[in-house]
């Protein structure tokens, strides 16, 4: 699961770091100190999230998810797709071909839109990270709103697709 954007990030970071260092050495050192402090701030929930993701990958591997959301249709299908999307963390460049394959095997288009939308906007596993910044209530509400909105997206996408 290699993200193609990683080299770009490194390129950008190193370029700016170099430019910054040429302009002002002191400020650059300060920037690195702040970078380190931001990292320490996120580290405790991050450690939790890494373990949660690992548990998820072992006990609910992608293969299982594919069969789960591939089989469900109608309301049950919506529900399964939304739950699968909310708890898993699959990068888009893996999820889109996966959804395409499922569509070709007879999965519903609305269910796929719900799956992709919840996958991107709802994050149960990353919630510990989110609460570190936005606290519990805001995290809960953002995820709940995104969860229900995903069904709206699924409905509209299925209507437009049938046009």
């Amino acid at each position: 699961m290699k993200d193609p954007s990683i080299p770009i990030f490194y390129g950008l970071a190193l370029t700016w770091l170099f430019v910054s260092f040429r302009k002002d050495k002191e400020k650059t050192i300060q920037a690195l100190r702040r970078a380190y402090r931001s990292f320490l701030f996120i580290l405790p929930p991050f450690a939790v999230v890494i373990l949660l993701i690992s548990l998820l990958l072992v006990f609910l591997p992608e293969k299982t998810i594919v069969t789960l959301i591939g089989e469900g249709s109608g309301f049950v299908g919506y529900f399964i797709a939304s739950i699968a999307g909310s708890i898993t963390l699959i990068p888009g460049f893996v999820a889109f071909p996966m959804a395409k394959m499922l569509l070709e095997n007879g999965a519903g288009i609305a269910q796929m839109a719900v799956f992709i939308s919840t996958l991107m906007m709802v994050g149960i596993v990353t919630a510990p990270l989110e609460t570190q910044y936005f606290r519990f209530r805001a995290t809960l509400w953002r995820n709940l709103l995104a969860y229900f909105y995903a069904f709206v997206i699924g409905y509209i996408v299925s209507i437009v697709a049938r046009w």
């Binding site: 993200d3 990030f9 970071a13 910054s20 300060q30 920037a31 702040r34 970078a35 380190y36 993701i53």
Partner: peptide
């Protein structure tokens, strides 16, 4: 095993992000 692999993967992803964030913060 998966946790170890994930840690390595994320340690590969996050340094440039924090560096950019730090530079943004200062400049």
């Amino acid at each position: 095993t998966v946790a170890f692999r994930n840690t390595l993967f994320m340690l590969g992803v996050i340094p440039p992000i924090f560096i950019l964030v730090g530079l943004f913060d200062v400049w």
